[in-house]
């Protein structure tokens, strides 16, 4: 799915959050959006998800303007504890989006189990989310997002509240999912390392108010990415430095 933002702006009353954002995400790209906290990354994501109408400009998905939540879209939120429904089991949480597909109960369950296995949670289906660790809960949230095979996946700092080890595991899970499913993914993060490690392309937003795109950087790293090797590559270090400079000096950075 191709995602296009044209002169997108977002304001709350007098407060300008985003301004003049032009961005095209081609089909199958994993785009990372980085920016200092409070720069409107989440607002951007909410607008793309159709949860909030744009105050200026347009969002189009495959040429269709976004007015409500687009079909084929899934979102993973940072706050897994709140985004999962604690009164449902893990399996029912994951199977929930399948209801509108008109599948029979048994099919829904089977599908949910299949996807749970894929994210490494086989056997956890009958438990409740709050019985699992944070990392496992976020895996459930990812499974719930993947169960409908979305062609556009939005992730709002999904690993932001996890410890380092868990976070690396989940980054690799995400890369694996992206390789096999080929969905377009917009991944919002404030972690510079993460953005370079995970992304095909990194976009840096300036601090608000009126955030704009200050850096648009393709990420080309040789070979299959892996946590130790890739992060040691000179290319990685260089890209990370460039993104870092853009984030830190974003205020006066030339737009290019």
């Amino acid at each position: 799915m191709t995602l296009r933002l044209d002169a997108l702006g977002q304001r709350y009353g007098d407060h300008l959050v985003l301004h003049g954002i032009d961005l095209t995400v081609p089909d199958g790209q994993l785009l990372c959006v980085v920016g200092p906290s409070g720069c409107g990354k989440s607002t951007l994501l909410r607008t793309v998800a159709g949860l909030q109408p744009a105050s200026e400009g347009t969002v189009t998905v495959d040429g269709t303007p976004v007015t409500g939540v687009p079909d084929q879209l899934a979102v993973v939120f940072q706050d897994y504890g709140r985004s999962l429904f604690p009164w449902l089991t893990v399996r029912d949480n994951v199977a929930l989006p399948l209801r509108r597909r008109g599948l029979a109960r048994a099919e829904r369950r089977a599908e949910a189990e299949r996807i749970l296995e894929r994210v490494g949670l086989d056997g956890a289906g009958c438990r409740h989310p709050w019985q699992l660790s944070g990392g496992m809960q976020q895996r459930v949230a990812i499974a719930r997002a993947l169960v409908c095979r979305p062609s556009l996946l939005l992730m709002d700092e999904p690993f932001g509240s996890l410890d380092a080890q868990t976070r690396e595991d989940l980054e690799d899970l995400l890369l694996e999912v992206h390789r096999t499913d080929g969905a377009t993914i917009v991944f919002v993060t404030h972690d510079i390392d993460e953005s370079v490690y995970v992304g095909d392309r990194v976009v840096v937003l300036s601090p608000g108010p009126g955030s704009r795109v200050v850096l648009d950087l393709p990420v080309q790293l040789p070979g299959k990415r892996d946590q130790i090797g890739t992060r040691g590559l000179p290319e990685f270090v260089e890209l990370r430095a460039e993104v870092g400079r853009a984030v830190r000096g974003a205020q006066g950075y030339p737009t290019g």
Binding site: A49, V69, V75, F77, S83, R100, R144
Partner: peptide, 15 residues
């Protein structure tokens, strides 16, 4: 946030 989640999952009113 859960209301957002329900919207993203496109749950119907009854669901």
């Amino acid at each position: 946030l859960r209301i957002d989640v329900a919207a993203v999952l496109r749950l119907g009113p009854l669901e």
